[in-house]
Computed example of a mutant assay.
Amino acid sequence: MISFKNIRFSYKTFKKQVGIHGTIKDLFKREHITHTALDNISFEAEKGEIIALLGPNGAGKTTFIKLLVGLIEPSDGVINVIGFNPYKKSNKYLSQIGLVMGQKSQLTWDLPAIDTLYLLKSIYKIENNDFNKRLNYLVNILNLTEKINTPVRKLSLGERMKFELIASVIHYPKLLILDEPTIGLDIESQRAIHKFLIHINKSENTTILITSHYMSDIEALAKRIIILIKGNIKYDGDIKQLLNIHKQENTLVVKTKSKLPSEIHGYRIKKGSATNEWEIILPVKDDVQYKLISYLTNNFYIESFNIKETPFEDIIFNIFTDNNKVNSN
């Protein structure tokens, strides 16, 4: 479905010298700086996969997406997507991909969404019966039937993003690329979009590539995760495996009527967020936790125990800030 082989992309910028004298010098001789956005990356994706592309700012995610849709050409390497070279911008290729960018809209602000959809119908040369059937199907799933003739500027952010999704899949794309699709959305809208994307993926076997700073998107949708750091793929594999490898600690939440000391058997103890609640940090691979629990139950009046796992977002943040923690598969 998607194949990147030894892809490298670099670009040049000019270094601007300070002051008027520097500007004059630049007229005669300018210093070039070469930046490498992607450095010899390779990966393959099968049809029907949902893949999350993650990385800190400047990691190369936007460059990755631009290469996929054919906006830029790689400096080195070979890209093959659905049997096409994206940079050639073949109509056959472009008609088989969909793109949603959370910060850019393809809808016309002052017109109803239906007008944009009719325009896409002409662009993709969709027959009337097929278009009407597809449109009714999609607006019903996303609960937008009553909003189809409402000007885009009068729609809520969540409703606009749902119409963006409809516009991106109206032509049955084989590959759907999502760049921050839930940015700024409330939880209800986020979950509705998650449900819709999972449905499209399962019912139409659509391959989905998603980038997002909301880890809830990644947890809800993806099984495979690619982590880009400084233009290199540092991890490509199962999301659960990544969490198991890099989960450092859990928190044992103890509710008790007794006051606990600041330390027991080497475990740090701190006051919890609720009344009569205490938090004990436990290493994930600690094989003597039962001794601590036994000690607590024998020496204190314990009302309840609860394990609070390290949030996925915290694990990913730690990986981004210390990229020595991840290695490519």
Rank of each mutant, 00 (worst) to 15 (best):
M1F: 08
I2V: 10
F4D: 01
Y11K: 01
K12D: 15
Q17C: 05
G19E: 02
G22S: 11
G22D: 12
D26I: 05
F28Q: 00
R30T: 13
R30G: 10
R30S: 12
H32V: 13
T36L: 03
L38Y: 01
D39M: 00
N40S: 15
I41R: 06
A45G: 06
K47P: 03
G48C: 11
G55Q: 04
G60I: 09
K61G: 05
F64H: 04
K66C: 09
L68H: 03
L71M: 06
I72C: 06
G77R: 06
Y87E: 14
S90F: 03
G98W: 08
L99Q: 01
L107R: 03
A113T: 01
I114F: 15
L119R: 00
L120D: 14
K121N: 13
S122P: 10
E127K: 15
E127A: 15
F131Q: 07
K133N: 08
N136Y: 03
Y137T: 02
L138Q: 07
L142A: 06
N143T: 13
T145M: 03
L157P: 12
M161D: 02
A167M: 14
H171F: 04
E180C: 08
E180R: 07
T182I: 02
G184Q: 14
L185H: 03
D186M: 10
R191C: 07
I193P: 03
I193F: 09
I198N: 15
E204D: 15
L209G: 05
I210C: 07
T211E: 02
M215A: 09
D217K: 01
L221H: 01
I225R: 04
K230W: 00
K234A: 14
G237F: 05
D238Q: 08
Q241N: 14
H246F: 15
T251V: 04
V253N: 13
L260R: 04
G266Y: 09
R268E: 14
K271P: 07
D286R: 00
D287A: 07
D287V: 05
D287Q: 05
Y290D: 12
Y290A: 12
L292A: 08
N298T: 13
N299Q: 08
F300I: 11
F317G: 11
F317E: 13
F320R: 04
T321V: 12
D322I: 06
N323D: 14
K325T: 07
